[in-house]
Nucleic acid binder design. Structure first.
Length: 326
DNA sequence: CGCTTTTGACCCGCGC
DNA sequence: GCGCGGGTCAAAAGCG
């Protein structure tokens, strides 16, 4: 693990583990102000996506973005084809001007069954240094040992959930997180990956439960939590944790081009996301240029060339980085 | 039949 | 030490 990584974790130390306090706040006039402030920051040469994701930017600033929201009409698709909700969560000067199609640049692709509006996003960089990691470590160890126990204890006592032997093991850092607020009437939004639900918990002070999902792809440990804001039930908070070790199935199916239109949502997602995060890019998109990667040369040098794979974002940001001109 | 969802139990860290 | 809350497990049920 690099020193850079360590710093990442250090930064997350300032982050509350649970994002809900941020997301639970209803967007409002004040929020809009914050949002605008955020946009200024996002457009700044000194704060980029990469900065957010690598944890190098000011998380105090980031947390402000949680209060805010702005929409993208084509971000996630409902899993069940549920109701479509495309209204703006908060008006901004960039959302309505977006001319982003799901077509990855040619604008010819049919919009994807949107039912939700991208509202806001934020990173929660890597793990809580100590406690979080230790906990994760142990759980990881437990999982591994369970596997061994299954082999060795066959026919043994299965009545009770084992008191698991513990031993020291390699530390496992908590995965970086990235959260989105989405205005949607369905909880689980299609994002191009396949997920299996492995748990659901009641959320304190909220009538809405939190669901836990894991990526079904083997050896991919990405997880996500989905919950509804208790103050604004139309808002779904999705928190991704970890890095996909594979491409989105949808992307694979669709094309090899990173921004080519998959049959489902991800490209739209990526573009919207990128556009939202980079207003100057979205402005140019109105001139008929729709491929975000085309603008990348205009971006300032990235401060953190080592960009981790952030699940969904892996498909956004690599374009961001790899297309960067020398 | 295989995969996903549901759901109660369990584990763990933390605060009191 | 105890209770609480977050996170995860895994058996059972559901589904296509």
């Amino acid at each position: 693990m690099s020193g850079e990584k360590r710093e990442l974790y250090h930064h997350e130390h300032h982050f509350h583990d649970d994002l809900s306090p941020f997301f639970s706040q209803r967007p409002g006039p004040g929020a809009l102000q914050e949002l605008q402030g955020f946009h200024l920051q996002a457009a700044s040469p000194y704060i980029s996506f990469t900065d957010y994701l690598s944890g190098s930017s000011d998380y105090g600033l980031l947390t402000k973005t949680f209060d805010t929201s702005y929409s993208s009409p084509e971000l996630f698709a409902p899993r069940d084809g549920g109701l479509v909700k495309r209204e703006l969560v908060a008006d901004t000067n960039i959302g309505p001007n977006l001319n982003v199609s799901a077509g990855g640049g040619d604008g010819s692709t049919t919009p994807l069954t949107p039912n939700s509006s991208f509202s806001s996003s934020s990173t929660e960089a890597a793990g809580e240094e100590d406690s979080g990691r230790c906990k994760k470590d142990r759980q990881k160890v437990v999982e591994e040992e369970k596997q061994q126990l299954k082999g060795s204890e066959e026919g043994g006592d299965k009545s009770k959930k084992v008191s698991r032997p513990r031993k020291k093991a390699e530390k496992r850092q908590r995965q970086p997180r990235f959260a989105f607020m989405t205005k949607s009437e369905v909880d689980h939004l299609e994002d191009g990956y396949r997920w299996r639900k492995y748990g659901q918990k009641a959320v304190k002070n909220s009538p809405y439960p939190r669901s836990y999902y894991r990526c079904t792809t083997q050896k991919c440990s990405v997880k996500k939590r989905v919950e509804r804001s208790y103050e604004d039930p139309t808002i779904v908070i999705t928190t991704y944790e970890g890095q996909h070790t594979h491409q989105s199935p949808a992307t694979i199916r669709g094309s090899t081009h990173i921004l080519a239109p998959p049959p489902t949502v991800p490209t739209s997602f990526r573009q919207d996301f990128l556009m939202h995060q980079m207003p100057q890019l979205s402005a140019r998109s109105q001139q008929g240029e729709a491929n975000p990667s085309m603008y990348l040369p205009t971006l300032p040098p990235l401060q953190h060339p080592q960009f981790p794979d952030y699940g969904l974002l892996q498909d956004i940001v690599p374009a961001f980085i790899h297309n960067k001109q020398p």
